[in-house]
Design a protein around this nucleic acid. Structure first.
Lengths: 343, 343
DNA sequence: TTGAAAGCGCTAACAA
DNA sequence: TTGTTAGCGCTTTCAA
């Protein structure tokens, strides 16, 4: 087999009797701007098409300093919340011609740090990060270096970069208020990892809602410790063992699973014995028993907002602070008026 | 602020009074091999650490022709099956020092094609693809070009590349046999898109299991058409309207959701009126009502096998044909002996 | 309207 | 044991 010539722009230029520069200009869509003749432009485009020649992006990136790629760092892509976020982000970025380098930080600062370094070394143009806990020193450092950065979901409070997130406290209030309205007063909650912004905020919202209703939330009504299902289940067990709660609000997706697991194992009747409003709407939320009243985060909008903010940053404009997106309550049948107490 | 010198190897070399080549060699771990003196090596490593200097990967890639990155193309990352696969793959590849470029093909050949082209243009070292339908002409083309390629889940039958997948037909047989054993004979199934290998195979397995039991599967017992939940629900409705089936096997994750949705809407009692064995174990499989008997695919093993196959390919070795991985039946309470028929 | 040339930062072959 | 050198293929500035 005769070796075909390398598919480089230089090659194409020689073949057409033109210069490398002209070819590069045309294929980068700058023909108009630089008044390349229509005829030359067509010739180049035709030939490029015919021989399937396109600029080598590595070379282009090395020269231009831009890679048209974005790093996406999330703590757990297997979590449907982040999976949907990743899907929407990839789509938005792809449409803007940018590629997505995906990194899963495994809810671990160390892994997150390594991945952030790796991505910077690969010269991504920007980063969208859902930080493990918002206190990774690399984030302010990157921001200071001028690397375009957008935080997602779990924000880093003191970081001067766009932070796309819902009003976590408000969302938790929404959940608690739905229960208060049905007459519940002894409402517990399952939390995730203390120190994680989104989680702290949700707990704050939970407390506020109770306080506003004139109820002093006992610290013992709040249990949890991390974002795993097993921890949530154990915490739920302790809450139920108190024998005083008529409702529980799991403040995260895995917590919801752990709680449901326990409810089923114990045979707790729901909502007769226990009402609940669960965080994160899922495709199956209406199919479990009982069908769950949930707090739905506007995932698609979050992804769009994050992508937009990053695009602005990359264009050298100031995206301004993104508004906190509102969550909504999806009412199903996991709430009832309190009657019996859990044994 | 005084502008710091660029963090290039050349710079570091000059600073240390050494040559660029020596620095490059050491930082690429080839010091031993090339008998660089221990003292020089330490000096270089120390300084590199101190000034946080690392090779520019773009330049390295341009020169070496390798990017240490892999393209991952899946039809739908929001589908938990692919989300978990993506997570496991990213981890395995990351540990081997390779970055993952993620692309979601939106179950669409056209998007898949665009993404494949884009990834090749970005010079990924290899690709792991769960093809939309295995008939994308770009796949054999890439394989012929020598681009390391591994197919995942949905294989492309005539493609001479490693194809990591479960025994789809066997898995479907497993599901049907579990129902036969309980005395069911009129068993329907919900299928996805005809022409997609995994789906065709599952349907084949379903037919075979019935045939082996001496039952002629009526074509009318097989309904579906694509991988969406809505289609599945409509198909399930038609199946139930026949009034003769005592069990249904949804052959994919979304089909399971569509079927459960209908069951709930119609108030079908399950498993009393209708038994089911559902494809794809999920975190919530045991929490819906009824708790689902499922076919669990070995997702983690699949990811590991695909990553391994690709690593072999990238090392220039022949990974050999990967064995078909076995699925297993997880028994819960969505099966009972057939009693009443659905109205 | 097009061309020439410099150089992005590195790896790898070859010299010393 | 280390240094010299030639590109990888492109973008961009300046010149024609």
């Amino acid at each position: 087999m005769p070796k075909s010539p390398p598919r480089t722009l230089q090659n194409l230029a020689t073949h057409l009797g033109l210069s490398l520069a002209t070819v590069s200009l045309v294929l980068n869509g700058r023909a108009r701007e630089l008044r390349i003749s229509a005829r030359t432009e067509t010739r180049i485009r035709r030939a490029a098409e015919r021989y399937a020649i396109a600029p080598n992006r590595l070379a282009a990136s090395l020269r231009s300093g831009r890679t048209a790629s974005v790093g996406l760092v999330v703590p757990d892509v297997a979590n449907p919340f982040f999976a949907v976020l990743a899907q929407q982000l990839e789509r938005a970025l792809r449409r803007a011609g940018r590629a997505v380098l995906l990194a899963d930080s495994e809810e671990t600062l160390e892994v997150e740090t390594r991945s952030l370094r790796e991505l910077r070394q690969r010269r991504v143009d920007g980063l969208i990060v859902a930080p493990v806990d918002g206190r990774n020193p690399l984030l302010p450092q990157f921001a200071a270096e001028g690397l375009p950065l957008v935080c997602l979901d779990r924000v880093a409070p003191d970081l001067a970069v766009p932070q796309v997130t819902i009003d976590h406290a408000g969302a938790a209030r929404l959940a608690v208020e739905a229960l208060l309205q049905q007459g519940h007063r002894r409402i517990g909650c399952l939390r995730g990892t203390p120190g994680v912004f989104s989680d702290d905020e949700r707990v704050r919202g939970y407390r506020e809602a109770l306080a506003t209703a004139g109820i002093a939330a006992a610290d013992a009504w709040i249990d949890g410790g991390d974002f795993t299902r097993a921890t949530a289940r154990a915490a739920a067990e302790r809450l139920l063992d108190r024998g005083e709660l008529t409702a529980i609000v799991p403040l995260a997706g895995q917590a919801t699973l752990g709680l449901l697991e326990l409810i089923r194992a114990r045979g707790v009747r729901c909502p007769e014995q226990l009402s609940l409003v669960a965080f994160d709407e899922q495709p199956w939320s209406g199919l479990v028993s009982p069908p769950l009243t949930t707090i739905a985060q506007p995932v698609a909008e979050m992804a769009q907002a994050a992508a937009n903010a990053l695009h602005e940053l990359l264009a050298g404009r100031d995206p301004g602070p993104p508004g906190r997106l509102p969550s909504r309550l999806i009412v199903r049948s996991s709430i009832a008026r309190p009657r019996e107490l859990v044994a």
